[in-house]
């Protein structure tokens, strides 16, 4: 991938056992650096890469030690951020990957759950650290291919937030590929007044490709819904029951779309799938402090600061289908896949 070469070539040189002291390795800092270095990186993938770097920095030489290390580092990482759902999906996936690849018979087909196989897996991981990121970016292209079939001429598509998958999907749909002409459609982008930055970026990118975009406020979603043909959103994380955790406002759009009988699609890569299973908005596993009751401000009493990027949970019954990198999935199929991979 050409795009990979220009992102932080320094980080390609993973220190293979040069620094055996894991104590000096700060996974939290690495995670944030990875996210800052590459704006295209999603949280789960950044978490996976941070774990691989941790693996390189450690001197763990047995399977057990390694699993222990990965677990401890994952926990440290989750504890350090306020909303750990997306990154915990990444770390869970990585742990599962480790377990599965260590279980597999080693080279030559012989039973080798032993040291030898472990070394092979370890070396493979360290050498191909950036493979996860490359594949994750590939996934967006695949989702774009999958999703364009669902976009038809003269469609009005409502979207929300600064999702990179949605941006890629819409941009690709507006291009013609051999045998498939470009789609002519319009986009209604719902702006979150509190966080304009990411939305403006997406709007600018879409307009640059000649797609007519209208920006509306969140209050106008119900008003605009009757003109819309489909709603398409991205997700921060996909839950075990086929729901999504996504930027605040997604749930509201989903409810209104269901009320107006509009299709609600989610574009999400497979690495965002995870074991989280929330039941209500307030049981996501961390406090968002979005709702704060106040009579009059009291001196010296600090109200808890609301989380920086608040999210909400959209239950699966509001979701028509998922565009994932390996196909279009019903929410129930997502649930089955999560069960297959992660349990």
């Amino acid at each position: 991938m050409a795009t990979d070469d220009d992102v932080g070539p320094g980080s390609r040189e993973l220190p293979i056992r040069s620094n055996p002291d894991i104590e000096s390795f700060d996974i939290v800092k690495t995670y944030h650096r990875l996210l800052a270095d590459d704006p295209d990186l999603t949280m789960p993938v950044a978490a996976i890469e941070a774990l691989i770097e941790a693996l390189g920095a450690s001197s763990a030489s047995t399977v057990f030690e390694t699993m222990d290390l990965v677990k401890a580092q994952s926990e440290r990482l989750s504890d350090a951020v306020r909303n750990p759902i997306a990154l915990s999906h990444g770390t869970d996936l990585f742990q599962q990957y480790l377990v599965l690849s260590l279980k597999q018979p080693g080279p030559g087909g012989k039973e080798a759950s032993s040291h030898e196989n472990f070394e092979v897996v370890r070396q493979h991981l360290l050498r191909n650290g950036r493979l996860f990121a490359a594949r994750a970016k590939d996934a967006r292209q695949k989702i774009a291919e999958v999703g364009r079939r669902y976009i038809h001429d003269h469609y009005v598509i409502m979207t929300h937030g600064g999702s990179r998958v949605v941006e890629t999907l819409l941009s690709k749909a507006a291009e013609s590929i051999p045998g498939d002409p470009r789609r002519r459609f319009k986009v209604i982008h719902v702006m979150d007044e509190a966080r304009r930055g990411p939305s403006e970026k997406v709007i600018a990118a879409l307009r640059a490709r000649g797609i007519p975009v209208a920006a509306i406020s969140e209050g106008a979603v119900a008003y605009a819904m009757s003109t819309v043909n489909m709603v398409l959103v991205g997700a921060e994380a996909v839950t075990a029951n086929g729901g999504i955790i996504s930027g605040m406002g997604t749930y509201q759009m989903a409810v209104i779309a269901a009320a107006r009988k509009k299709d609600f699609f989610v574009a999400a890569e497979q690495h965002k799938f995870g074991k989280t299973f929330p039941l209500t908005q307030f049981k996501l596993g961390f406090q968002q402090d979005v709702i704060q009751f106040q009579a009059k401000p009291k001196e010296g009493q600090e109200a808890p600061t609301p989380v920086e990027n608040p999210v909400d949970y959209t239950p699966p019954e509001y979701i028509t289908s998922f565009f994932a990198d390996h196909g279009v999935l019903l929410p129930s199929a997502v649930a089955k896949e999560v069960l297959d991979f992660l349990f």
């Binding site: 029951n241 129930s332 069960l339 992660l342």
Partner: peptide, 22 residues
């Protein structure tokens, strides 16, 4: 029903056969 908690994990009720298969 919203969720079934088993020792293998928390799943939606319709995924119970998948647990069985697992």
């Amino acid at each position: 029903l919203s969720v079934v908690i088993t020792e293998l994990g928390s799943v939606q009720p319709t995924s119970v056969p998948d647990i069985l298969r697992k």
